[in-house]
């Protein structure tokens, strides 16, 4: 019952966004019914499209988890894009550079080292916030741009196969691949496992309790003897780790090598998903599948109904709009639930 209640606001937000999206589709001269049936067909009909949806959902789950986890400590990690990029790149480098290892060692090693690289990248804004008071919203975005340049340089100058015209790393060894069973990708289940682990960490451990205390009231947490600075740095590090796992799985399980730009925009999707899930780690899974379904079927929507695929981004923005302003949804349903996340009050404070 309580699960149903807390799912109500996101469901209404999604419905409202789809209604407004339908109006937009109609004004651009296409049929909303055709567009939305193509959306469902392209994402859930048949194992192949369902497999594609799960494949696209995987980095989104990790991106959503990264944002949701940071939210729990009152931090807003917009740096998922850069952290994911480092994960994808380092996993690709380890995946092709280490040879002769058995799968049981090589694949987890590539996954882990990619994630560690992202964790280190995520730690930087954490340290800057804890020691210098630089707000993570700006530093993470700046680091996204730095990461894009760094990754391009590494993929061009350091790890590119000689003679390759494109900026990309060589194809990874078979022993580093994350397999797909039929059409069902293993990577998806890794992401689900992380979602469960993060839920456990937050709800059932002392460390998770400390994180949530800092998120609810940093000064009270400080008086209670929790080192707020330590929590800020650790939370950002773990958040970067999670985002980078998404990038690593993308390289090892989907693309097979690192290519820049392949994950463009995923960092922002993570924000939508985290808010849609109301920062609940397990609710991130269905939220990510929803966004993935829209992304997976955007081209079929264009093919069948003649709608520009960018409508998906517009619907996403609308979902975020309706989720972020619970008052709009309140017009439709009476709910005494609290309003979810608040990060604005930490702006500029040290």
């Amino acid at each position: 019952m309580s699960v149903l209640r807390s799912a109500l606001i996101p469901l209404i937000a999604v419905t409202l966004a789809l209604v407004v999206g339908a109006i937009l589709i109609a004004t651009s001269g296409s049929s909303p019914v055709e567009a939305y049936s193509a959306l469902i067909e392209g994402s859930f009909f048949g194992w192949e499209s369902f497999g594609t949806t799960l494949e696209k959902a995987t980095p989104l789950i990790m991106g959503g988890l990264a944002v949701a986890f940071a939210f729990k400590a009152g931090l807003f990690n917009i740096g998922g894009q850069g952290q994911l990029l480092f994960g994808a790149l380092i996993a690709g480098a380890v995946g092709y550079g280490f040879t002769g290892l058995p799968w049981i060692i090589h694949m987890p090693l590539a996954l882990l080292l990619g994630a560690v690289a992202g964790a280190a990248w995520g730690a930087i804004p954490g340290i800057l916030k804890a020691t210098r008071g630089a707000h993570e919203v700006i530093t993470t975005i700046m680091l996204n741009f730095v990461a894009a340049n760094m990754a391009e340089w590494l993929a061009t100058k350091v790890w590119r196969k000689e003679g390759d015209i494109l900026v990309r790393t060589p194809i990874i060894e078979d022993s580093a691949e994350i397999p797909t069973w039929g059409h069902v990708p293993l990577g998806f289940f890794i992401a689900v496992a992380f979602a469960l682990a993060i839920w456990f960490l937050l709800q059932r451990t002392t460390f998770g309790f400390e994180i949530r205390s800092v998120g609810l009231n940093p000064s009270a947490a400080g008086y209670a003897g929790i080192s707020v600075k330590r929590i800020i740095v650790l939370t950002m590090t773990i958040s970067g780790f999670l985002a980078a796992i998404g990038g690593s799985i993308e390289t090892l399980g989907v693309v097979g090598r690192y290519e820049p730009g392949v994950n463009a925009g995923l960092g922002f999707d993570g924000i939508t998903i985290a808010l849609l899930a109301r920062t609940h780690p397990i609710a991130v899974i269905p939220a990510a599948i929803l966004i993935a379904a829209m992304n997976a079927s955007a081209s079929l929507m264009q093919f069948k109904a003649g709608v520009a695929p960018e409508i998906v981004d517009v619907i996403e923005a609308l979902i975020l709009l309706f989720v972020a302003t619970p008052i709009i949804v309140r017009w439709f349903v009476k709910s005494r639930q609290d309003d979810g996340v608040s990060v604005g009050a930490t702006w500029g404070s040290t």
Binding site: F76, V137, L275, A324, T325, P326, I327, I328, V341, S342, V343, G344, W347
Partner: peptide, 8 residues
């Protein structure tokens, strides 16, 4: 609407 300003 008094939403969170950073999210807005």
């Amino acid at each position: 609407l008094k939403g969170d300003q950073i999210i807005a």
